[in-house]
Design a protein around this nucleic acid. Structure first.
Length: 136
DNA sequence: CGTTTGACTACGC
DNA sequence: CGCGTAGCCAAAC
């Protein structure tokens, strides 16, 4: 279950994780959700397919003054979750493209190319041990 | 206080 | 590959 009183804590974890995604990389709502350990407030089982939705809710409620790379989170299909063609979708796509992320004809990103592989990758990239865009 | 609405996903056609 | 739907919940109306 998802305990409302502690929603803010869940949200903060989401924001903290998203903040770790390096430029030119993307992750999905579901992936972010799976990185948050279960607790008495939310268990992986009952949130199975709903967890991702909560990650989306958390991002939607991101404070204006919290500079996290929200645009690096897309859906499991590799596509931007805002209505295609909308202002928000365009902005997100532009932000990603400015980091070198490429979209195919159908507006899809290739996770095998730019999918964030986790904290380890972030660590290596930060310490100059890994060329940001040459992994894989 | 009842309804509508999501920055989702897996699955079946 | 695209489209519809169940899942089943807190928030915003």
């Amino acid at each position: 279950m998802f305990n409302p009183p502690n929603a803010s804590r869940f949200f903060q974890l989401v924001w903290a994780i998203v903040d770790e995604i390096p430029p030119g990389r993307v992750s999905s709502y579901g992936q972010i959700a799976s990185m948050i350990p279960p607790s008495e407030d939310w268990d992986a089982a009952s949130m199975k397919r709903l967890a991702a939705r909560w990650v989306g809710t958390a991002l939607r409620k991101t404070p204006r003054d919290l500079p996290i790379p929200w645009h690096r989170v897309i859906n499991s299909q590799g596509k931007i979750s805002f209505p295609a063609g909308g202002a928000q979708a365009q902005r997100q796509r532009q932000l990603l493209e400015s980091e070198g992320v490429q979209f195919d004809r159908r507006g899809k990103v290739d996770f095998s190319m730019v999918g964030w592989t986790g904290p380890a990758e972030t660590f290596l990239a930060r310490n100059g041990l890994l060329p940001p865009r040459l992994l894989r």
